[in-house]
Every structure is written in structure tokens, then in C-alpha cells.
Design a protein around this nucleic acid. Structure first.
Length: 492
RNA sequence: GGCGCCGUAGCCAAGUGGUAAGGCAGAGGUCUGCAAAACCUCCAUCACCGGUUCGACUCCGGUCGGCGCCUCCA
């Protein structure tokens, strides 16, 4: 069973075959750093993280590039408004992006190129396109790409089979009349006074200005994979589904026109949208939820990741509190099993548990190989939890196999809660003179010890009072068969 | 108007020509001082209407409903 990935270009799942295995180049469109990224953005980044982790788990050596768009209308406007330089303005949101990324346990890309650091390669590419005659300078001093000169235009988004209604999106820019064709897109924008004010203008042979949005991805991707892998074609290019047109279509046009190759990426992967209670997140609806909002509410990353993993990356996902609650409980259950496995050790031997491990391994791998079918992979995990718990309840003693498979599979999805495992409590932990308030781990163990003492004295009201106290502080107490108990942090 | 996605149990969600994974919630049970956890059992005929087929949730046509893209939004 080999990995199959859905390619937007062909609209079908194809066997994955990188150009130079085991190396795989992956380019993912990163955030525009003008604001805190919202969870819709992060749904895409999490899908890409899952892709990255699965490729690596499958033995590939991934070279992952994610760009940071740090010069565009929004970043410039933001800098103007805050009355700081562009660099100062974006630095803040770049730092925030990485904080959020770490919170969500997203592996760092190998390189995070920023558009402002790649102006020279971008200028070189524009010159190349001008020389080849596929770009032209408009009356406004900007440089545009001539769609008509690029026969393959529209393949990715199936533009050839549809009509473009000019301005249908209501976002047509005022300078459209400077283009020869309404569909032509800007490669280089002539500098305005505002651009100069925030330091967003560079000299170029064809006039002072700043790069257009699409240009950065082509220039940075080609530069980086050229240096790293000596390649001119990406193995995988991924992003949100809204980037198919025009962003990726335009990237293909300028990149292929530049390299002379017939493709820019072997596989194009696009993640579906996340909606909030049925509608797209936007400032207009006031329904933006950021990663830091979740973090501040104490939501564990495992909960978020499980919520997203329950829906296939190419299916729309509606974010609701109910779904989040369900994910939290599921994550807790998985984490509890993981902790139980770890506590059970690997010194025993159990053909039944080995069979559970083998089944999990097979089912998980098949699911992930089938275009990253995380919902099915998750089902395999839950099947293993149920069977594993049943066998452990029956007194089976695990060998090393289940623990190994469990670690390998859960590492890919990262859906377990971060909360530490349970701490075992005995009567020896009972201490007098405890404060009623507290909350840390030692405090919880001490109170749980006192509860055991109360239980031993058959003082049920006191035992229950202490349990309530612990519950209020966010700790769960569970009695064990041997007379001891355990306390565990309730999942967030 | 064009292009695309989706409509599966109370909620979330896989699947796909041969009689519907998994999770959450709920009900009953085992265990327990009581709980919790864990386990067991129960809980759908797949928006609607036609058609193809021995057989369709799965293929084709249509209808209704939801969502997205159509120049810089993941």
C-alpha cells in the first residue's frame, strides 16, 4: 500500500512519486502577517503539518518551505495606521504566528522566507518575464503578466471551462484599466507615497515599486528548492482552497514561463474551509476566532487537533462549541489510554495486545495513505483504545509492540492532551494542615491521600467533600482496586 | 451569471455498487461505600424525485437546501 494524494490539478488521488526520493520538497503558502492568524488559517496549517508528519513517518526526508507575506496592501495599511515601519509592524505578527504555531504543536518549516528578503530574486524574475515577452509595463508604471501569452493558463482552476465575470467579487481594484486584459495580474506595483512612507518600495530596472503577491511564492520556492535540491519543480505545493484561483494559477503562469517547464508543482493540495456556525470567518460578521483565543480559554492543542482530524482535510468543517466539547472528551480518552499503556510498561507478553498493535498499525497506515484520511486513522486509534482497555482490564500484560505503534501513530496526529498522566496516591500521602485552596500537583496528591484516610475510616461525607474540593480545582480522583487512588488533571 | 464543494443517527463524521467505521451525547448493565475511569449492550437505511442495475447511500438525470471561489481571503 503506497501513499496516494489528491492532486487538484487532476482532481484525483494519485500515487505519490517525488522527483528525487527520499527527498520531498513541500511549499506551503503561509500567513500574511498583518494580524493574528485565525483558526481557519490554522486549519490549513494543521492539515499541512499532518502531511509533513506523515511523509516523514513514511520515511521521506521533507524539505518544507513556508513563506511569510510581509509586504502587501494589508501590511502596509497596518503599518501606516500604527505609524511604524513595515518591518516593525510585521515583526510583531511574525512572533505571534510562531507562538500560535508552537501552541498547536505544528512542526516548524525548515525555512520561513519573507517577501521583503527576496526582493532581488523577484526583480530578477520580473526581468526574465519581461525579456521573454510575457510581461509588460502598464501606463501606471506597474508590471503585469500577460495571460494571453501563456497558453496553459487556467488549467488548475479549470478556468478554460468557465467565464470570468469581471468584478463579481466586488474587490476589483481601481487600477484595472491599466491592464491590457482584465485577467492579467500584477507582478510589480509602482511605488506610491504611502509605500515609501513605511519603507515598502525598492528600486528596480523597470521602476521603483514593490512585488505583487503571487510573485513571492514563485521566486522564493524556485530559489530555495534550487539551492537545496537542485530542482525547478516542487514535489508538493499546498494551501487553502481559496488560493487555487487566482494565487496558484498565477504562480504556475509566472513560474513556468520563467523556467520553461510545463509544471511548477507535481502535486497541488488544497485544504477545505473552516466555517464558524455555518459562515465564513470574516471581520464583517465579527466571527473571527484566533488560535490565541483558544489558548487563552485553556483549550488544549490536542482538542483542537482532534476536532480538525475528525473531518477529512478536503471536506468543509463547521466549528461549534459542541464539536469542541466532543473533541475534548475524545482527546482525554486517548490520552488516558496512552498514560495507562505507559504505566503498564513493556515487560510482559500478550499475543492479544500484539494483535491490537498490528491491527492499529495496518488500519492507521492504510487510512493515512489514502489521501490522509485522518478520520479513519482516528477510528483505528479508538478501536485500539477499546480493545486495549478491555485486555488490560482482563489483566493482560503488554509487550513492547503496542506502545511502539501507539507512539508512532499518535505522533503523527498529535491529538493527545498535553496534560501529564495520573499520579498514584496512597494513604502515606495524607498530610494534615493543608490549605483548602491550592491546585498544584503535590497539593492534589496530599488531599487525595487525606481522602483515602477518610475512606479508610469510613467517613464518606469527608471523603466526598475532599473529592469535590479536588474537582473544583480541576483534578479528577479515581479509586483503584488495590486501595490506592490516582489524581489526574482534567483535560482542557 | 460561471466554476466548485457539501447534504449520512440528537451533534460531529468516515465509507461507497452487495444490505452503514469511529467519536461525543443518551439509555441499560458490570465494577464501586458513592462516584469517576474502564468495559459490555442498545441507539440510522444515508435531503427529495426519477432512471440504470439481479442489487444503489454509493452510478446517471433532475429538484430542494447549505457553503465557497470568480484579482491579492487559508
Amino acid at each position: 500500500m503506497t501513499l496516494r494524494l489528491h492532486n487538484t490539478m487532476t482532481r484525483s488521488a494519485e500515487p505519490f512519486a517525488p522527483l528525487a526520493p527520499p527527498h520531498v520538497s513541500v511549499y506551503t503558502c503561509g500567513p500574511t502577517v498583518y494580524n493574528y492568524a485565525h483558526i481557519g488559517n490554522f486549519r490549513t496549517f494543521l492539515f499541512e503539518d499532518m502531511l509533513r508528519r506523515w511523509l516523514e513517518a513514511s520515511g521521506y526526508r521533507v524539505f518544507h518551505v513556508m513563506n511569510l507575506t510581509d509586504v502587501d496592501d494589508k501590511t502596509i495599511n497596518g503599518a501606516l495606521k500604527a505609524e511604524v515601519s513595515l518591518a516593525e509592524h510585521t515583526a510583531r505578527f511574525i512572533a505571534a504566528f510562531h507562538e500560535d504555531r508552537e501552541y498547536l504543536r505544528i512542526l516548524p518549516a525548515h525555512v520561513y522566507p519573507r517577501a521583503t528578503e527576496y526582493v532581488a530574486p523577484m526583480i530578477a524574475m520580473v526581468e526574465s518575464l519581461l525579456e521573454k515577452g510575457v510581461a509588460y509595463k502598464g501606463d501606471d508604471g506597474s508590471v503585469y503578466f500577460a495571460i494571453a501569452k501563456f497558453p496553459g493558463y487556467g488549467k488548475l482552476s479549470r478556468l478554460d471551462t468557465r467565464e470570468l465575470q469581471a468584478g463579481a467579487g466586488g474587490r476589483t481594484s481601481a487600477d484595472e484599466y491599466d491592464k491590457a486584459d482584465a485577467r492579467d495580474f500584477v507582478l510589480w506595483k509602482a511605488a506610491r507615497a504611502e509605500d515609501e512612507q513605511v519603507g515598502a518600495a525598492w528600486d528596480a530596472p523597470f521602476g521603483r515599486g514593490r512585488p505583487g503577491w503571487h510573485l513571492e511564492c514563485s521566486a522564493m520556492a524556485l530559489d530555495l528548492i534550487g539551492k537545496e535540491l537542485d530542482a525547478e519543480v516542487l514535489d508538493i505545493h499546498a494551501g487553502g482552497i481559496d488560493l487555487v484561483f487566482p494565487h496558484h494559477e498565477d504562480e504556475i503562469a509566472q513560474s513556468c514561463a520563467h523556467t520553461g517547464r510545463d509544471e511548477f508543482a507535481r502535486v497541488w493540495m488544497h485544504g477545505e474551509f473552516l466555517t464558524m456556525s455555518g459562515t465564513k470567518m470574516s471581520k464583517r460578521f465579527g466571527n473571527i476566532l484566533t488560535a490565541r483565543d483558544l489558548r487563552e480559554e485553556g483549550v488544549d492543542a490536542g482538542t483542537v487537533r482532534l476536532l480538525f482530524a475528525t473531518t477529512h482535510y478536503r471536506a468543509p468543517l463547521d466549528f461549534t462549541d459542541q464539536a469542541l466539547d466532543a473533541a475534548r472528551e475524545g482527546s482525554r480518552r486517548l490520552g488516558a489510554f496512552g498514560a495507562r499503556l505507559a504505566a503498564a510498561g513493556a515487560g510482559g507478553s500478550s499475543p492479544s495486545l500484539d494483535a491490537v498493535a498490528a491491527e492499529l498499525d495496518t488500519a492507521f497506515t492504510e487510512a493515512m495513505n489514502d489521501d490522509l484520511n485522518a478520520p479513519r486513522a482516528l477510528a483505528a486509534l479508538f478501536d485500539a483504545v477499546r480493545e486495549g482497555n478491555r485486555l488490560l482490564d482482563a489483566g493482560e500484560s503488554p509487550g513492547p509492540s503496542l506502545q511502539a505503534v501507539w507512539s508512532r501513530t499518535t505522533d503523527v496526529l498529535q491529538v493527545l492532551p498535553l496534560a501529564s498522566g495520573p499520579r498514584v496516591v496512597t494513604m502515606a500521602d495524607a498530610r494534615d494542615g493543608l490549605e483548602e485552596s491550592g491546585g498544584d500537583s503535590d497539593w492534589a496528591v496530599a488531599w487525595a491521600g487525606r481522602r483515602l484516610a477518610a475512606k479508610h475510616a469510613r467517613d464518606w461525607p469527608e471523603a466526598d467533600r475532599i473529592r469535590d474540593l479536588l474537582t473544583t480545582a480541576g483534578w479528577e480522583v479515581r479509586d483503584r482496586k488495590d486501595g490506592s487512588a490516582e489524581v489526574v488533571r482534567a483535560a482542557g
